[in-house]
Amino acid sequence: MSETDRTYGPAALAGASEGTGGVSRRRFLTGIAGTACSVALLGMGLTLYSRSASTTAPNAIRPPGALDEDGFLASCVRCGLCVRDCPYDTLKLAQLGEAVAASGTPYFIAREIPCEMCDPIYCVLACPTGALDPALTDIDEARMGLAVVVDQETCLAFQGMRCEVCFHVCPVKGDAITLEQRHDRRTGVTSSFVPVVHSDACTGCGKCEHACITEEAAIKVMPTHLAKGHLGEHYRFGWIEQQRAGGEMLAPYDKEHEFHLPEGVRYEWFGEGLIIDDPGVPAEPPPADPIDTLNEGLEGLDGGTR
């Protein structure tokens, strides 16, 4: 038999004790070292390959309910049951070597066949592993991606034409896409109605991209992390904070120090602006030196030098 059954693995530990002297011990140790090196190299290779072969193309959209990409690569067993149960042949399994998504994982290309937003959600029901989250039962809550009007230079609506095809095919129209009336600066007299996508309602189904009548779609669905920006955590929009605080920009006790306005004059944001409480009495004319206004009420604090 040409087959020699050398064992350097865990079983080698058992065999080592039978060895006589240094030669077999050296062989054993070289064997272990060799195995360790190969395993380490293999591990590095596997990791590098798996990482690089797991990028998802920007036009490849995961099925509804798919966990985020990391979670998906940990959970999808690449069985294609979701593909089989999709009544519209929307979903496909990525093939080995195809630079679209990790080999064997399901995706769809909206421009080819978009998701029809089934109810019940057949693909999610078919998934045996939870890679498509079974907690998703209302397809309107799906966030497969996000539609973006990527090219205002070719979108017909932006040119002032009444296209609006994307708006009309949208299964959540009115919420996911709205039409916004704008003054058409080209004609100067007419209005244009441009599509605006709202991330709080767009499911990423891709019907808009599929239907866009231009040769290359002017509206495209992208994975949310590509389509969506993110404010820094420290960022606050004043008007939103104001709403949250019940309409007050600042805490009420601070209110009177809000502005150093002349007596009898108030200022209201988003309201009337400057309000002069008693129009009968003319407002005190502004002092010649504006610093005096700022220092109003502070007289005497610094020893009365002002």
Binding site: G43, L46, T47, Y49, S50, R51, A53, S54, D70, L73, A74, V77, R78, A102, S103, G104
Partner: peptide
Amino acid sequence: VLGTATGMMMWEPV
């Protein structure tokens, strides 16, 4: 083991 380290299934890609 690599699966736990990377959070991905490690043999299925290959």
